[in-house]
Computed example of a mutant assay.
Amino acid sequence: MKEIAPTRESFAEIGAATDRLLTGLTGLRDADVHGPSRLPGWTRGHVLSHLARQAPALERLLEWARTGVETPQYADRGARDAEIAAGAGRPAAVQLSDVRERAAHFQHVIETLPGPAWQATVRPFTGELCTPQRILVIRLRELELHHVDLDIGYGWHDIPASARHIILADVLSYYAEAGGVPDFTLRDSEGELLGRIGAGGPVVTGTAANALAWLAGRSGGTGLGPAAALPALPPWL
């Protein structure tokens, strides 16, 4: 699974993704927040509640790394889902304030985490053993993908190349380790290699943005080709 070093540049990448999200949320009304997102069964309020609640959940893993005391991200999936649902119906102003404050606190925590803690071993909700360096990838991924999921004018091609490169590598690493994934090679529109699963299979071509949408389960392969050669992928996460 993808990890990134806890550098000034990594922290700035997460801070910039947060700023883009908060800028996009400016002016949202209650009716907008209660309207549907691009995720089936979730309103924009569900997405915002998830982003707000995810920050302290990831901080629990960072506390685990700092102290050595096991502190799970969530008690279980039911507790996670209940937290999201509980906050989904709040007014827009409350939602936005929550996202902003939680994101600011998370940014402070990562920027002040002691050096040795970054080499500790923790286990996120998804089950893999990793260092807190993976938590930086998870937060960046969630900020960017859910910004698109909110359906507020931010699309796959709006994700900056630096962030998209990290997220695409993370999603590809998931498929490389998952079972039942057919072989394929992924290349961008200029023929540059984006990733490879297995040793054979079809060559899928298109923009990195369209490839990420497809791999993340948000697209059936729009903009990628040849359409007849697109492999059927198992669900991501």
Rank of each mutant, 00 (worst) to 15 (best):
Y74K: 05
Q54R: 06
L25R: 10
W214I: 04
L25E: 12
S219Q: 10
P235G: 13
L230F: 13
L150H: 07
P40F: 01
A85D: 14
G198T: 12
S189R: 15
R196L: 05
G180L: 05
G206W: 03
D32R: 08
I138P: 00
E192Q: 14
G191F: 08
P91N: 04
G78N: 09
S219V: 07
L61W: 04
E83W: 12
P124A: 03
S162E: 14
A79P: 00
P226K: 08
A232K: 14
A57Y: 08
A52G: 14
G221K: 09
V203P: 09
R164H: 05
E101N: 11
L25S: 12
F11A: 14
H105P: 00
R102E: 11
F106T: 00
E9C: 01
V204M: 03
A229Q: 15
T26A: 15
P160F: 12
T67A: 11
T18S: 13
A228N: 11
T185Q: 09
I166C: 04
G223V: 02
L96N: 00
S219P: 03
A103D: 12
L150E: 05
L194I: 07
W214L: 06
A213M: 06
T131S: 14
W42A: 06
P132G: 02
T112E: 04
A104F: 01
Q119R: 14
T185C: 08
S173F: 01
T23E: 15
W156Y: 11
L143D: 09
V137E: 11
G27T: 07
A199G: 13
G200Y: 03
G180W: 09
L62A: 12
L143R: 05
S10T: 15
Q133W: 00
P182M: 06
S10V: 09
P202D: 08
R20M: 11
H105M: 01
L136Q: 05
P234K: 09
G220H: 08
V109R: 15
H147W: 02
E83C: 04
T205A: 14
A12V: 07
W214E: 11
A92G: 05
V99L: 02
F106D: 00
G127W: 07
G221D: 09
